[in-house]
């Protein structure tokens, strides 16, 4: 039989354990928040810019069908032969909302909102879901294990999982089976100083620019006319803003 001395030492250890667990629980939220810090590495993007988009739903044709088409053309998603409708990739989709009291129907394109505090980045177990220093939220598919945690965490249903082997991908938009993908804000074009494909196709309905620069087109327009975040109540400070919703 165990003697009282032992019981006391067990009890002490147990209490210490509780203390450590409580300390970890207090620290954990801060520790788990993964963010790519502004790097000093030569030529790397910095946090001096934060890319954003302002979408005027009133100016969009067919609720943004041309935006969806331009995205498909640029990145080559949506033609997965062996996937069913629910499995097929969808980087941007048209959402129809109806005001119940008046019956007013509005449509808006919804894609990755490039949140400042992105839930997908928080939950990723491998660090594949990441935010670039300039605010663009991406999946680093080299280390994505396809667990789809980020898809669960995203309040905008912006991410898709590739269910099948893909062939003949576009050179600037690598996509592959077993990884999660979403709108990249056409990062390959932005790096070259160009605008995203959807912005180019929208005939002025979408304004792209630097949210950190008070003199940029997008900042000026936001200051003069304002723009809404979808689910602003979540406090994610999205990089994509809307007008006319």
């Amino acid at each position: 039989m165990s003697n009282p001395q032992n019981i006391n030492s067990y009890r002490r250890k147990f209490m210490q354990g509780i203390g450590v667990t409580a300390a970890a629980a207090t620290l954990a939220p801060g520790m788990l928040l993964r963010e790519v810090q502004a790097s000093n590495k030569e030529g790397y993007v910095t946090d001096k810019v934060r890319w954003g988009m302002l979408i005027d739903t009133n100016k969009l044709v067919e609720g943004g069908q041309e935006v969806v088409n331009a995205c498909k053309k640029e990145h080559g998603w949506g033609a997965e032969a062996h996937s069913n409708e629910r499995q097929k990739a969808s980087w941007v989709r048209k959402v129809t909302v109806t005001e119940k009291t008046t019956g007013y129907v509005n449509q808006l394109p919804v894609m990755c909102q490039h949140c400042e505090t992105a839930p997908c980045v928080d939950v990723c177990p491998t660090g594949a879901s990441m935010k670039r220093a300039d605010g663009i939220v991406l999946v680093n598919k080299h280390i994505c294990i396809g667990c789809r945690y980020c898809m669960m965490a995203c309040p905008y249903k912006a991410r898709s999982f590739v269910h099948e082997s893909l062939f003949d991908q576009h050179a600037d938009s690598p996509r592959g089976k077993g990884t999660v993908e979403s709108c990249t804000m056409c990062v390959h074009r932005v790096d070259e100083g160009k605008e995203p494909a959807c912005v180019e196709a929208s005939n002025g309905a979408i304004v792209f620019g630097d949210l950190n620069d008070p003199n940029s087109n997008i900042s000026q327009k936001l200051k003069a006319e304002d723009g809404k975040q979808i689910r602003a109540d979540l406090g994610l400070n999205t990089g994509v803003r809307y007008q006319g919703i």
Binding site: G43, K48, G193, D213, N217
Partner: peptide, 17 residues
Amino acid sequence: AHKIPALTSAQAKGGSH
């Protein structure tokens, strides 16, 4: 080649401010 007005590649990398 739809360039962003007054945005060079160097500025795109974060040098605009």
